[in-house]
């Protein structure tokens, strides 16, 4: 397949068995199209973070294959990684460093010279509301600021595919709305593909065009937001006029039935 036409992410029959014997992923197959805003939902321990870890090279898979824009992550890991930006679930930067240094250094690991990385980092941090916090130590930032710093860090090399693992966890409502707007702007303005995991189902409903629900290591629903929401009516659930409520009902039905 031509790399230009390839999906942003093609996950095929991926399995992960940890050393403890826990089977975290049981043959997951998933496709994320270029330019899509894709939500991967699931309860705690469903396998979302494991899957993201495998895609980004932080976790070794047991079986299966993954392509990022047509590039096999096993055969050409460096090329595949160059397309990716990751906002992890846990805060994972050196708290003694300054935000500007954290972002600029991240650009360096992608081969971005400082002459380009510094102005780009300044713009990203300013756009994300951290313009006056660039030179303080990262440990002095609030929880929401740290999350935004991680987004800036993930965007410094202008990735084609941004992966966000619960980016709004612990962020207040106002800031969360601001982040929604920013993320939506990334897909609509820059054409960046986004894969989002979140426990805030209304967030997924507001932002995502496609959604997959994973439970106990297996995909239990996958389609456009409308298709997945339609499962609510098919199951005979209540039809409400609150859109977020419908996804929540579908989510609970699919993850509870498997319990």
């Amino acid at each position: 397949m031509n790399h230009e036409d390839a999906p942003a992410l093609a996950v095929r029959d991926v399995r992960k068995v940890y050393g403890s014997g826990v089977e975290a992923l049981k043959g997951v197959t998933l496709t994320v199209l270029q330019g899509d805003f894709f939500a991967l939902l699931g309860p705690n321990g469903a396998g979302k973070t494991t899957l993201i870890g495998i895609i980004t090279g932080l976790v070794n898979k047991t079986a299966g294959s993954i392509d990022v824009f047509g590039t096999d992550i096993d055969k050409e890991p460096e090329r595949a990684k160059s397309h990716l930006g990751l906002v992890g679930q846990e805060v994972n930067f050196n708290p003694f460093e300054k935000p500007i240094d954290i972002v600029v250094n991240q650009g360096g690991y992608y081969g971005l010279p400082r002459s380009i990385a510094i102005p780009r980092a300044q713009k990203l941090l300013t756009d994300l509301g951290l313009g006056d916090k660039m030179e303080v130590r990262a440990m002095e930032l609030s929880g929401g600021m740290k999350r935004r710093l991680m987004i800036a860090r993930a965007l410094i090399h202008e990735p084609r595919f941004l992966i966000l693992d619960e980016p709004t966890a612990g962020v207040d409502v106002e800031l969360r709305r601001g982040m929604w707007k920013y993320l939506r702007g990334l897909t609509e303005g820059s054409g960046i593909t986004i894969l989002l995991t979140t426990h805030y189902l209304e967030e997924a409903e507001q932002l995502a065009r496609h959604v997959a629900i994973i439970n106990k290591g297996a995909i239990v629903a996958n389609g456009t937001m409308e298709e997945v929401l339609a499962l609510h009516e098919e199951g005979g659930g209540e039809t409400g006029d609150f859109r977020g409520g419908r996804l929540e009902e579908v989510f609970l039905k699919l993850t509870k039935n498997d319990a």
Binding site: N92, Q106, Y109, Y110
Partner: peptide, 18 residues
């Protein structure tokens, strides 16, 4: 310390740095 305390080693591991 980069892998144990803040897991900041992930910054490099997710990058294309071989």
């Amino acid at each position: 310390s980069s892998k144990f305390f803040a897991r900041s080693i992930d910054e490099i591991l997710v990058s294309p740095t071989p």
